[in-house]
Simulated scan of single mutants.
Amino acid sequence: MPVKPSVVIVNGSPRSRSRTGALLNALANEIARVRDVDVQSVSIAEIGNHFGTEFDPALLAPELQRAIHAIENADLILAGSPIYRASYSGLFKHLFDLVDRDALKGTPVLLAATGGTPLHGLALDTQFRALFAFFQALTLPQSVYALDVDFNDGRLINDDLSQRVRSAAELAAAHLESNRGYREASNNVSRAPVAPAPVL
């Protein structure tokens, strides 16, 4: 039986119930509607208390190790955060500080964010894309930004937003198969040893 493509939600909200989580879940549900996928979720609200104690991956808490392993082996990442002070949450960034710098090469990443003003949507291009460019990930050209007023009791209530979610999800689903082929080819190529990253 073929293995289902892995879709990993990375939710940068520090709240267990959040608009960011609702948006990311809506994207994942739309992808699952058109493709048979295995969806996993990494939530800062659940693992955030394990940050800041270690930087050696082998010494991290098991919850963090599992989260990092899921991200590094994803066929598609749904990365989202509420916007604070024109950027993603600090723990969202800290999580990716712990991800291997070569693990996400070519991995498609669908970006999403929530905020209180339309101007915060610029962070998707100025902050999120720059972060994943470092990893040489493939940030999809269509991202999704939602305002606080687009939700009611954790549900999307804006029809235009729902359409953008469907469109972005269809685009993301189309990249799944090509990424799996890329990762398999990359794994078969021998690599020269990489010097360890400097300790900051």
Rank of each mutant, 00 (worst) to 15 (best):
S143A: 15
V39G: 02
I31C: 02
S87F: 11
K105M: 09
E54M: 12
T139E: 04
F132H: 03
Q163M: 08
D150T: 11
T114V: 11
S87V: 10
V189C: 09
N49I: 14
E46G: 03
R17W: 11
A172E: 05
T117M: 13
L78S: 01
N187E: 11
I157N: 08
A58M: 14
P118D: 04
T126N: 15
D97R: 06
R66F: 02
G181D: 06
N49T: 15
L104V: 01
Q142H: 14
A74N: 03
G52K: 13
H69S: 10
F135I: 05
D75W: 00
L171E: 05
A28G: 02
L24D: 03
G121P: 12
A185G: 07
E54L: 11
D75A: 01
Q142N: 14
H120R: 15
S81M: 07
N188M: 02
E63Q: 14
F134M: 12
F134A: 13
V3Q: 13
G12D: 07
T117D: 14
L64A: 04
Q40C: 03
R183M: 02
I83R: 04
N29V: 11
T139N: 07
A173H: 00
P196A: 07
T53H: 14
P2K: 14
G80V: 05
N158I: 01
A67G: 03
R183T: 01
L124C: 11
P82C: 04
G48E: 10
P198S: 12
V39C: 01
R129Q: 07
P14T: 06
F135H: 05
I68M: 01
A173P: 03
D56H: 14
E46N: 06
I31M: 06
T114D: 05
L104Q: 02
I47C: 05
L140Y: 05
V39E: 00
L124F: 13
A173E: 01
L138G: 02
A185V: 04
A103I: 00
P14L: 03
G21A: 08
Y84K: 06
S178P: 02
N49K: 15
D102R: 09
